[in-house]
């Protein structure tokens, strides 16, 4: 390496990625946050400071929608954490069992829903759960539980939970794969050492494997968090932009879409939309920070 010569090739290598990334991702991100501080009054863009956020959090009409969407979003996330991740871990634990036959086949089949688009998943489940078609009531009838059937997607009380479970059905493959990879990386010697001490079967899972895969569970949790607070497609495909019935499935993504793009009688308002985006940004940032500083650094990592 010679002295003080400008190495242009470094700039050439970096430039395309940095330019596209900055122009299409970072700049719009900050520009959106900036737009949240403006408002359109009489065709003029006027700086209004934090007024939009005040409207969003406290104005009766807006606040009701916002807190509803935020609450729904948390419920959506909680269902994923309580259902998707445990099922994913359980499937991975079964699949990682040594010398299990057809493991690759199960793995590929269970991953199929994950590759389908939300549009397909949303409509497919809508048809299956539809009382008109009668597949869901028919199946419940076959196991003697017909009385349990209800038009789940159409009832305010159940619609959000049903959609969350559909989303769980779709994405179980991701925690399954990541945990499966983590379980495979546990060296055989550790398990054999446990075996000699009489730790086998289920207790080997709880006492040896689970502590070792905790970092992967942490990563899955934060991926789930970011994914859920950014979700939109499934609700839009299944319930439309109005997130019916009666906004009971409204989450931040659909709320933001309706607000900034406009829907039916409501006119689009990019500045309020930006304010909602700002709130989403803050929530995701808080989640990521809690993970990075609160969980990841305290998690005990074992040198394998």
């Amino acid at each position: 390496m010679q002295t003080r010569r400008i190495r242009w090739h470094i700039a050439v290598f970096l430039a395309p990625a940095v330019i596209v990334y900055t122009a299409v991702m970072i700049f719009p991100l900050f520009n959106t946050l900036r737009l949240a501080l403006f408002s359109r009054i009489d065709q003029e863009r006027v700086f209004v400071g934090l007024q939009n956020f005040r409207t969003l959090f406290f104005d009766p009409i807006w606040a009701e929608q916002f807190w509803n969407a935020l609450g729904n979003n948390f419920w959506f996330f909680i269902i994923h954490m309580l259902v998707q991740n445990p099922i994913g871990i359980a499937l991975a634990a079964l699949l990682s069992h040594p010398r299990l036959r057809f493991a690759a086949l199960y793995r590929s089949a269970i991953f199929i829903p994950t590759i389908l688009s939300f549009v397909i998943v949303g409509f497919a489940w809508k048809l299956i759960l539809s009382p008109i078609w009668g597949i869901a009531p028919g199946i419940l009838d076959a196991v003697g539980l017909k009385s349990l059937f209800a038009p789940w997607l159409g009832k305010e009380d159940y619609a959000l939970t049903t959609l969350a479970l559909i989303s769980v059905w779709q994405f179980v493959g991701i925690p399954m794969m990541l945990i499966y990879a983590a379980l495979l990386s546990i060296p055989e010697e550790i398990l054999e050492a446990g075996e000699i001490d009489g730790i086998v079967g289920a207790s080997a899972f709880w006492k040896i494997k689970l502590p070792l895969i905790l970092p992967s569970i942490g990563i899955i949790s934060i991926l789930t968090f970011v994914g859920n607070f950014n979700a939109f497609d499934l609700i839009y495909a299944a319930q439309g932009a109005l997130a019916g019935p009666n906004f009971s499935t409204d989450i931040l993504g659909t709320f933001m879409y309706r607000t900034f793009f406009g829907f039916q009688l409501q006119l689009g308002d990019p500045h309020m939309g930006s304010a909602i985006a700002g709130a989403m940004f803050a929530i995701i940032l808080i989640g990521v920070c809690i993970y990075l500083f609160g969980i990841q650094t305290r998690m005990r990592r074992y040198q394998l």
């Binding site: 299409v24 991702m25 700049f27 719009p28 991100l29 520009n31 959106t32 737009l35 934060i222 970011v226 950014n230 939109f232 993504g253 933001m256 900034f260 990019p270 939309g273 930006s274 985006a277 989403m280 940004f281 995701i284 940032l285 990521v288």
Partner: peptide, 11 residues
């Protein structure tokens, strides 16, 4: 970690 969708309005 930060989804690009947040910047949709400006994009």
């Amino acid at each position: 970690m930060i989804p690009i969708r947040i910047g949709t309005v400006a994009i």
